[in-house]
Design a protein around this nucleic acid. Structure first.
Ligand SMILES: O=c1ccn([C@H]2C[C@H](O)[C@@H](COP(=O)(O)OP(=O)(O)OP(=O)(O)O)O2)c(=O)[nH]1
Ligand SMILES: [Mg+2]
Ligand SMILES: [Mg+2]
Length: 577
DNA sequence: CCGCAATACA
DNA sequence: TGTA
DNA sequence: GCGG
């Protein structure tokens, strides 16, 4: 989202970069394609285990740093995975001379590498002890021979360097003049970034003031400028003027910017008490624009005011335990509740719905209340460095594989688009092959969250979907996704928002696309699908509008193909400011 | 003039 | 109304 | 605020 300011202290410090002269390296340093070829010896593996391994490998998986590929021939393999431990047994599948030239590892090497987010040293995973030395020598871990073993800086090197740059080149038919963000290439930082960040202030103000349509217009204009490949100058005005979503109003904004190096309204807004207060209030989880305006109208200007308003700290939480999660609890001062229960009276007295949605097991996981949100603020308003995102991801994958081995997971959200700091961690979890309607994932959501909670890794649960009473009135396959929105903490660490999205196999790739963003990119994907292709796209799937037929993509690229779109790598989906 | 992404859940 |  |  937008750069969060350190609220609190005044200092206006507009630290935005000035109009750039810097050339962005156009070639975008893509790698010479380092896909690691994996050969899997099926012997001694159950069908399930084989399927799991194939799933891991086949879906290049986990994050962009690891890129596997199945190979049908051991001779072409960079690594051979087997559960066989004896020479005689292995020789039935692989020529011994060949075996000595390859790293021969156990399936655990693959799982653990995926968990760690990097290729691990093979030593501990040698499948045959008598080939241990050869295996170590041929191991694809780290960089060839330099053998810094990658063990000292555990989850770094490979990952950190490779993730921001992206893999396959963007499709040729991207067009910066298109009116859909999903047809354009939008880098994280564009050549006119300073202008973009000024427009973003106006946009944000419109949003806070509940002028959604105006905000949308600025979203569109910002998106156009983000993908405009030239530095804006007077002589480009004509060209820019002819761009979609750039009308008279936006042109006047741009002209003002070119003349004065800034936009006055943006400056005024940014300096206004109201804007600063509203912006700060919405940093509180559960406080949106509407609530922020109400707080402001109630006289609040600073966080101290809000704390007072909601009843200051301490608040013995003795009575907190007693009440159940969704019975309304008249909390806080009479007027402003954070978004919460607005049970229409109908269901209030009516015992229609399942009396107990089968409450999450034993010790209830704390949910979010206004007080909790205030307590969490100091942690949650800190943004998350990439390295920590990877760390959190590795832990979650580790726990996930304990709960359901063979799952595939991908970090999505801003991280995947290359942001160096993220507001939260978004993870899509799937089990790409196997089982028609996600029997593998259903219910996984609560099981994983329970486990994380028991281990002290999840402290709060603000949202959990996935239990379904036999409610008939469910149109599409909305149950193709389960979500858990959590507060997660590594031992001794800062508490972080972590979103877990569990996808049924047929929804896995649309979920990846749907959760990679950016937000404007997503809206335009849906618009494109509807307006140009008579398709309906959302993170649960892609359907034909005529007959509702479900189109099931087999890869992320396939999602774009089915939509009739050129490939846009995640790092070029940054259509928002 | 009308539509602008999408939609279940708390 | 807020959330992804 | 803009596109159709
Ligand atoms: O209204 C929304 C909000 C989110 N998303 C998708 C796109 C977005 O990229 C993704 C993850 O949402 P999140 O709020 O985590 O945003 P982000 O892009 O990951 O940025 P941040 O670094 O703030 O988490 O979910 C939508 O499609 N519509
Ligand atoms: Mg995110
Ligand atoms: Mg998120």
């Amino acid at each position: 989202m937008s750069p969060r300011k350190r609220s609190r202290s005044s200092s206006i410090s507009s630290s935005d970069s000035q109009p750039r002269k810097r050339q962005r390296s156009s070639s975008d340093g893509s790698e010479p394609d380092k896909r690691l070829k994996v050969y899997i010896v099926q012997a001694k593996l159950s069908a399930d285990e084989v399927a799991s391994l194939y799933a891991l490998v086949d879906h290049h998986s986990v994050n962009e740093s690891l890129d596997f590929e199945l190979t049908p021939s051991p001779r072409d393999a960079d690594v051979i995975v087997t559960a066989v431990h004896m020479r005689k047994r292995l020789e039935r599948h692989i020529d011994w001379a060949l075996a000595k030239e390859k790293p021969i590892v156990t399936p655990d090497w693959l799982f653990n590498s995926v968990s760690a987010g990097e290729l691990l040293p093979c030593g501990k995973f040698a499948a045959l002890s008598e080939l241990h030395d050869e295996t170590v020598h041929n191991c694809p871990d780290g960089d060839d021979d330099s053998d810094t073993a990658a063990s000292s800086p555990p989850t770094d090197s490979l990952l950190h360097l490779r993730s921001p740059s992206q893999e396959p080149a963007a499709s040729a038919d991207l067009d910066w003049k298109s009116r859909y963000a999903c047809c354009r290439a939008s880098p994280l930082v564009c050549v006119n970034q300073h202008l973009v960040s000024r427009l973003a202030i106006i946009r944000r103000s419109r949003e806070l003031e509940d002028d959604k349509i105006s905000a949308l217009s600025y979203d569109h204009a910002i998106g156009m400028i983000k993908s405009y490949p030239y530095e804006l100058t007077e002589d480009r005005l004509n060209e820019v003027n002819s761009l979609p979503h750039i009308g008279p109003k936006m042109i006047s904004r741009i002209e003002e910017y070119l003349d004065n190096g800034d936009i006055e309204e943006a400056e005024t807004i940014a300096n206004s008490q109201r804007y600063q207060s509203l912006e700060a209030f919405t940093d509180l989880y559960g406080v949106g624009a509407t609530t922020a305006r109400k707080l402001y109208a109630a006289g609040c200007r600073t966080f101290e005011d809000v704390e007072r308003y909601y009843g200051v700290s301490y608040e013995d939480e003795a009575e907190e335990e007693a009440d159940l999660d969704d019975g309304l609890k008249t909390e806080e001062t009479d007027d402003l509740h954070l978004a919460s229960q607005h049970n229409d009276r109908a269901s209030q007295h009516n015992d229609r719905k399942p009396p107990r949605p089968l409450r999450f097991a034993k010790p209830k996981i704390p949910s979010i209340t206004p007080r909790v949100a205030l307590d969490l603020r100091d942690d949650l308003d800190q943004r998350i460095p990439r390295e920590e995102v990877q760390e959190i991801f590795a832990v979650i994958v580790r726990e996930l594989n304990a709960v359901r081995p063979g799952c595939v997971a991908t970090i999505v959200g801003g991280y995947r688009r290359g942001k160096s700091l993220s507001g939260d961690v978004d993870i899509v979890i799937g089990h790409p092959n196997l089982s028609p309607t996600g029997k593998q994932v259903k219910g996984l959501s609560s099981r994983l969250v329970e486990r994380l909670y028991e281990r002290g890794l999840v402290t709060h649960l603000m949202y959990l979907s996935g239990f379904h009473a036999p409610d008939v009135t469910r149109a599409a396959h909305w149950d193709a996704l389960e979500k858990a929105l959590t507060v997660f903490v590594l031992p001794g660490g800062v508490r972080r928002r972590v979103d877990l999205i569990f996808a049924a196999p047929e929804a896995y790739w649309t979920a990846v696309v749907g959760w990679t963003g950016s937000k404007t990119f997503e809206r335009d994907l849906r618009r494109w699908a509807a307006e140009q292709k008579e398709l309906k796209f959302d993170s649960t799937g892609l359907t034909r509008r005529s007959n509702g037929e479900l189109l099931v993509p087999t890869s992320e690229e396939d999602v774009f193909r089915l939509l009739g779109l050129g490939w846009v790598p995640p790092t070029l989906r940054n259509a928002d400011a």
